[in-house]
Design a protein around this nucleic acid. Sequence first.
DNA 1: ATCTCGGCTGAACATCTGTTTAGTATGCTG
DNA 2: CAGCATACTAAACAGATGTTCAGCCGAGAT
Lengths: 213, 213
Amino acid sequence: MLNMCSAHDDLTARAVIRDRALELFALHGPDSVTVRQISTAAGVSPGLVIHHFGSKERLRAAVDAHVAAVFDGLFARAAAGDLDPADGASFAEVFLRELPPASPVPRYLRRLLLSGDPAGTEVFRRWFGASRATADALVARGVLAPGRDPLVRAAFLMVNDLVLLLLRDQLADVLGVDPLGQEGAARWADEVLAVYRDGLFARGTERFQGTER
Amino acid sequence: MLNMCSAHDDLTARAVIRDRALELFALHGPDSVTVRQISTAAGVSPGLVIHHFGSKERLRAAVDAHVAAVFDGLFARAAAGDLDPADGASFAEVFLRELPPASPVPRYLRRLLLSGDPAGTEVFRRWFGASRATADALVARGVLAPGRDPLVRAAFLMVNDLVLLLLRDQLADVLGVDPLGQEGAARWADEVLAVYRDGLFARGTERFQGTER
DNA sequence: ATCTCGGCTGAACATCTGTTTAGTATGCTG
DNA sequence: CAGCATACTAAACAGATGTTCAGCCGAGAT
């Protein structure tokens, strides 16, 4: 099984520091994490962290770049058709399945997107580009209706997907089931597809949709 | 001089400190903001901040409570039908219209939700409760179809709305227009309503829209 | 063998952190 | 009036923070 933790050699202390920093940053936010916490988590001295990255800020930038690279890889594989969308066809789900179960990357992405960091904006742009591309493809194949405002429609579909990553914990709280887990994802996809298929409003024809899945 | 500490805020230094802290917390995150920054922003000494709130952590809690109270007020007014949903019927839009244009509250809410703070979870719960109530009401009036999974459907509708607050900046970036501004909100609501009405998939009956590509 | 060099450490550095303390001014109450 | 409580400040405190520095260690080159 291939791991996307690093392109080349992996066990170098530099990479260990970066990975531990990623985890801690994702969990508590970069500002609340100290160099000493990172260094002890990586089993090295605080000085070595600075020695390798120059400063805490540059370490943060390196982690940003690393996460962006992970997403680049995922987008590239998605564009190459390497990842089968399966049913549901949700980027978020596919990505989550592609990463290790306890990967800190999604959590870090939340921080990246909601903090307004340029690196987060860049990932968002790329994600949107991919979303738009697949939407266009589905429209070309006659599956999706383009709508009057394809740009906005693509954005709408994308954030409907992305929001599962962002609000996963809160949704799990009120729903009582993890919307990205086994059962929750099924229920969520079911309902979303129902809306996408039949719309939201009560129709004159009584709601009787025999189409079971 | 002014009266002593009272829950009913006005120009008391305590309230000023709280408000400046809210702004700074919303902008940079509570962990990156120092007591001294807050005190100079409020025009007081660092000691006074501690004198009034006991500690920085308790100040943060006070700000959380204040934001929660603001939302409580909005929810109460919404429940009382005091806010007209207008068209589009988006909670996020209505709330944003109700707050001062440069209010730090939405930005603070983002942090609250992403940080997993209990206060954020509480606001989310309340928001979901309100969402579910209005959804139920619309179903009872025969406007909305309940769907097979009303809980999930209500959550879906709610986060479709909430995501505009969370990703406003990123969406504005890729769309080229603020989705909560004048023009952007209209375009967004148009497209969302179209999906909610007609669904997403190309129907047998072709709708001719053909201008693009 | 020596030399060198990069990974690495331990202790120190200056600065910044939240908080405390001592003290002042002012208004309220007896 | 004295007495007291409150809003507030200036200065200091202990500890944490990011960073620097002198030096150790082991491997590869000469």
